[in-house]
Amino acid sequence: MTETDLPRPVPTLLDLFLTYGKIGLIGFGGINAWARRVLVEEKRWLTDQEYAETLGLGQVLPGPNALNAAIMVGDRFHGTAGAIAAPGAMFGGPLVLLAGLAMLYDAYGELPTMRAVLAGVGAAAAGMVLGTAAKMTQKLKPPPMLLAVGLTALVAAGVFRVPLPYTVLGLAPFGIWAAWWANRTP
């Protein structure tokens, strides 16, 4: 774990704003995989463990989890101003883009070319998201019981389509119990 020993850069408020703006605009297939890529790998503001913990808390709280995580990351580095700048940038860019798309959609409906490009991008984005989950698992090296909780979440939500509130709230006690168990036998 040499990478956790290096000093971690602390972003300025402007860094935070610009970086979350970028995460929003490149966030194909959802924000979370991209936020991890940029915050952990590119900027090194957070470790994999810190990012995953923040996202995990964002998931048990009500509201969009990427938004909850952005508020917590913003608050961590720059208090109230950070908690406004990070999610504001993350939503602002894509919102402008979406308004443009909505206008095009109203005017032209769906263009076949656009549809083909988006299908290809969608397939690649799906792989990007799966690859991120694999990479996180590899780096976090979870003990067997925590791994089992993660795989259960994957199968419940991804294969059986159990509604997310049930998946999250149903598995949380088991995850916490597994973390407690792993902690008492180091």
């Binding site: 297939g29 959802g30 979370n32 995989a33 463990q49 995953a52 913990e53 996202l55 995990g56 808390l57 964002g58 998931q59 048990v60 799906a126 792989g127 990007m128 998201v129 799966l130 991120t132 989950a133 694999a134 996180m136 698992t137 976090l140 979870p142 925590l146 791994l147 909780v149 993660g150 795989l151 259960t152 979440a153 994957l154 419940a156 939500a157 991804g158 997310l164 998946t167 999250v168 598995l171 949380a172 088991f174 995850g175 916490i176 119990w177 597994a178 973390a179 407690w180």
Partner: peptide, 14 residues
């Protein structure tokens, strides 16, 4: 304890 759920749900969304 919440970490594996976060990662598992990223994989599920993929």
């Amino acid at each position: 304890g919440l970490v594996p759920i976060a990662v598992g749900l990223i994989a599920a969304s993929g």
